[in-house]
Amino acid sequence: MNIFRLSGDVCHLVAIIILFLKIWRSKSCAGISGKSQLLFALVFTTRYLDLFTAFISIYNTVMKVVFLVLAYATVSLIYFRFRKSYDSESDSFRVEFLLVPVAGLSFLENYSFTPLEILWTFSIYLESVAILPQLFMITKTGEAESITTHYLFFLGLYRTLYLANWVWRYHEEGFFDQIAVVSGVVQTIFYCDFFYLYFTRVLRGSGKMTLP
């Protein structure tokens, strides 16, 4: 465990909690892509199957369980409890365009051709693109509430910090995970445009982020 990894995990947790509380307290999921949240629930489910096969640490187990529970709780708020506020018309990204290539790639490019490994690889690839329905929704409606942008900021920062973690681990431990690193770089690139808008628009004032 190093400082980049720990702060990355904290940012990830903060992001998920921000989103959950935003929906819970406003009793509305307006502006939130249910499809992105479903994809993240799928990411955690396929990646954390190792909860049943390998014990790493209390920290590891607790975080995995918390991420899983919060992911499904968020999905259920969007699709059940507050579904009247769900803007399904704006959430029109075709997820099959992500799921099919990601599933295909995880069969082709993995560390070993076993069910658990393929699902782990699938989760890594899927995570790198899972935010696209949310970004697409913001582009389509042309705006995002500032609380939603804070969620996206912490979610983007999490994988960016993991990149620093991987550089650290490579130097300190000689550990290099090609699949995770390449996917992590791709994932971070998707946030670059958002980061720019976040710093130039959200943090300098206006309540909402509006697109040019």
């Binding site: 390998a54 590891n60 431990e173 995970d177 995770a180």
Partner: peptide, 10 residues
């Protein structure tokens, strides 16, 4: 094997 390291990351 790098497996334990990978399963360590979230």
């Amino acid at each position: 094997s790098s497996d334990p390291v990978r399963h360590d990351e979230l």
